[in-house]
Simulated scan of single mutants.
Amino acid sequence: MELGLTGKRALVLGASRGLGAAIAKSLAAEGAQVIAAARNAEKIQDWAAAEEGQIDAMQLDLSDVDAINAALDDLLKDGGIDILVNNAGGPPPGKTTGASRADWIAHFETMCANLIHVTGRVLPGMQDKGWGRVVTITSSGVEQPIPNLALSNGLRSALVGWSKSLSNEIAGDGITVNVVMPGRIHTQRVDELDAAAAKRTGKPVEEVAQSSAASIPTGRYGKPEEFADVVTFLCSERASYVTGSKIRIDGGSIKSV
């Protein structure tokens, strides 16, 4: 299937590892020109050299709005962005009662406010071209809250309401806006969460991972490539009538219809 991504310019945030890196690789393999951004650009350079297609690493700290603006100024002068993948690292695990006001504010800025800001900066160029794709990575916790991930459950849910509102406003401009919800995709982040659960419960980490996988209808964690390929399709010409949607990639783990 021809996805129509050849020559499209994509900005993938949080791309040093995990889901962001997998998305960057998948888009590049389909012919997109990918700018993979993260605080540690050297990590991107380490894996990008072995990939097919064009992937350029960019240092970008999502907690630093001045650095964000400087990076976007350069990108917008140099042709703009056709595809934006909003992806931010998750906050530490913890209960709602254990999170302070300062915790909520600090993580809201990085995980929500600055992603919304990046989107606002690149949208005018998409509108001028009459074509664009915005995909925001959240979590299965926005539909079925995940125990001990209170900050993530709350903050990523805010992105869902924003994304749906935005999709309605700009659908007539040829721009689609969608949310993708990963379940237990086997990344370093999931390994870290399993390790935290093991420490909290006193169980071996292998037992925690096996129990978690057994609770998923497919009986396993997802592969980053499986997740990334769905995102790539949503970024393509073929998905031009998909907007304002929440897409689950969770192996069936969310229990609601």
Rank of each mutant, 00 (worst) to 15 (best):
D191Y: 00
F108A: 14
I216R: 03
E52N: 15
A214S: 14
Q144V: 01
P217D: 07
M126L: 09
W104C: 11
G161W: 14
L151R: 11
I55W: 03
A195P: 04
P93D: 00
S236R: 06
A10V: 09
A38M: 01
L3R: 09
A29D: 12
G132W: 06
L166V: 02
A88N: 11
N69H: 14
L13P: 07
T96Q: 07
T136M: 13
S215E: 11
T96V: 14
R133S: 11
N148P: 01
I185K: 00
V85E: 05
I23V: 15
S152C: 12
G161N: 12
D229I: 00
N178L: 02
G20V: 00
G252T: 08
K199V: 12
T6R: 14
V122F: 08
E2W: 05
C112H: 11
A88K: 08
E51I: 07
S163C: 01
T97N: 04
A29V: 02
S256K: 04
L123W: 12
N178H: 03
G244L: 01
T97V: 10
D73L: 05
S165D: 11
G161D: 06
R156D: 09
P124D: 08
G219M: 04
K199I: 10
G174F: 10
G132C: 01
L13Y: 05
L166N: 09
S256F: 02
T201L: 12
S26A: 13
K77W: 04
V85W: 03
R39F: 02
S165K: 08
N148A: 07
S16Q: 03
G141M: 05
A37M: 06
A70P: 11
Q59C: 04
R248K: 11
A38Y: 04
T96Y: 14
F108K: 12
R156E: 10
N86T: 03
S165G: 14
S152W: 11
Q127R: 15
I35H: 03
D191N: 02
L72D: 11
A196K: 03
N40D: 15
R184Y: 08
E169A: 14
I185F: 01
Q144T: 08
T138E: 06
P145Y: 08
Q210L: 11
I249Q: 05
G18I: 00
T119G: 12
I170H: 12
G222V: 00
E206R: 06
G80V: 07
E169P: 09
W104P: 14
D191C: 01
A48V: 05
A32M: 06
G141H: 06
R133D: 11
S211F: 00
I23M: 02
V122L: 07
G4M: 07
K8R: 15
S215A: 15
N86F: 06
M181D: 04
L234R: 05
A50L: 14
I83N: 08
V12L: 04
K255L: 13
G90L: 04
M126Q: 13
I247W: 06
G130R: 13
I146D: 06
G222L: 00
R156T: 13
S215Y: 01
P91S: 09
H186R: 04
R248N: 08
W131N: 10
S215M: 12
S212L: 07
G120F: 02
Q59R: 15
S140W: 01
L19Y: 01
S211G: 15
L155D: 10
G252W: 14
